[in-house]
Design a protein around this nucleic acid. Structure first.
Lengths: 248, 248
DNA sequence: AACGGTGTTCCTTATTGAGGAACAAGGAGA
DNA sequence: TCTCCTTGTTCCTCAATAAGGAACACCGTT
């Protein structure tokens, strides 16, 4: 582990949390390192445009290089291009927000979303992360893990209870996965956030492995059992379409 | 300048250019540093999710942290939120692609675009960079630089000729800026790419400084002189709206 | 079975990053 | 207006630590 690189990236994290930007002194206090060290790191980051000074004063913010890098990352993920139209259609038919997620280190990463009302700020919530054990998409993916991978997932998870309905025991979770495999979809019944229900389904790649998942999410008052029953086949169908689009 | 941080970021640049990802040996050759050094840097970057191994083999790609960071950067740029609906409307009325750009180190950065046909991949070309001297938006902004800043710009620019029509002399450029100030808009007449014309106008902030610019771009066959004349007031009006929205 | 190619680990050295202190600049308050 | 904080920035010295060579482990090919 390279200390200076590590520190540089911690600085970036700090700046991410402080939209207004931070000065050298602020950062040096936060990190517990000398001002001069922070200053040197910032200069290096600035050279590569990962940070920038706001109107040439001593306040630093995240730089525009991140737009560039984001673009490059997105380019590689042609999954978004393939899936977006299908997600778009799904949003239209179910009139609820839909998401596309993938996995990284047993954590969910939201890589696309389509809102019913506004097409604006499509990029906004992408990049958000969430745990698997308390979400529809997380469970949908876990249900199709091979046993080995599932065990590795269990050793990673902390079973944190976000609501009274969150599943927090391995045996309960395994039972839930059996149900999901049987039905081909998963439900999130206020397990992550009270008042929110969602329907999710897995997306498989050409090797038959689960690689992504999609969901339709809404408030409990709209998402009653009758509505859920209507939505289920639509989500499953959309997930299947995406699976086929990526070569399943 | 911190060597290790610098190298880490050069590695990220290399990975950006190689969508398929690179191995430790490839990178070590590219950078001219030892494999072990590259490996150590990659491990540190991986810890922060700026890079990831593709299916746990020895190939590294850009990581999903960039989506997160992009999100944070975008959040701060409420300019995009403000301008997007106006850009959207402009695209509808002129039926050509429109762009919103800002400046960084006398280079243009595209921060939003609206295509006429598809709302998909809205994020795609954002983050792209281009020189000022050969683009409509670049000239529109330069026209409203204070003399001091203009001189600094001249000392930065390389006057590279992208097409036979690119302006490559300072005196010609200054004459062009005079024309732009007089008319309140700028034209790009195949100066950056043959077959492409565009109409651009500057956006001013609350201090009356030029801070952004917008443009409508299309192929020469559609963008004849008559059409250009129709488009000009629309672009100017949209730019003015955005200026007002940010407090001009 | 031997080889060439990976990525990874270890260890030693001197390169280079770190931090204290001094400096410059700017703003607030008396 | 002058002073006194508090900024960011620069410099310099020392030792922490990053770098690179070499050895190792692994895989696929010949």
């Amino acid at each position: 582990m390279v200390q200076s690189v590590d520190r540089a990236m911690i600085i970036l994290d700090c700046l991410k949390e402080s939209p207004k930007g931070l000065g050298v002194t602020d950062l040096s206090k936060k990190l517990g390192v000398a001002k001069s060290t922070v200053h040197r790191l910032l200069s290096t980051l600035e050279k590569h445009r990962y940070v920038k000074k706001v109107n040439n004063e001593g306040i630093y913010q995240l730089g525009l290089k991140f737009l560039e890098m984001n673009h490059a990352v997105m380019e590689n993920m042609n999954i978004v291009e393939l899936a977006h139209p299908i997600l778009d259609e799904l949003t239209k038919t179910v009139a609820e927000i839909t998401h596309l997620v993938m996995l990284e280190n047993f954590e969910l990463v939201y890589i696309d979303k389509v809102e019913s009302t506004s097409t604006i700020r499509i990029y906004s919530q992408t990049g958000r992360r969430a745990p698997m054990h308390c979400t529809g998409v997380g469970k949908a993916m876990a249900a199709y893990f091979p046993e080995k991978k599932l065990e590795r997932f269990f050793s990673h998870t902390d079973w944190k209870a976000f609501t009274p309905y969150t599943i927090t025991k391995e045996e309960d979770f395994r039972a839930e996965l059996d149900r999901i495999r049987e039905k081909g979809y998963s439900l999130d019944d206020e397990e992550h956030e009270e008042g929110i229900r969602c329907v999710a389904a897995p997306v498989f790649n050409h090797q038959g492995e689960v690689q992504y998942a999609i969901s339709a999410t809404g408030p409990t008052n709209r998402m009653n059992n009758k509505r859920i029953e209507e939505i289920i086949p639509l989500v499953k169908k959309a997930a299947y379409k995406i699976s086929k689009a990526i070569g399943y």
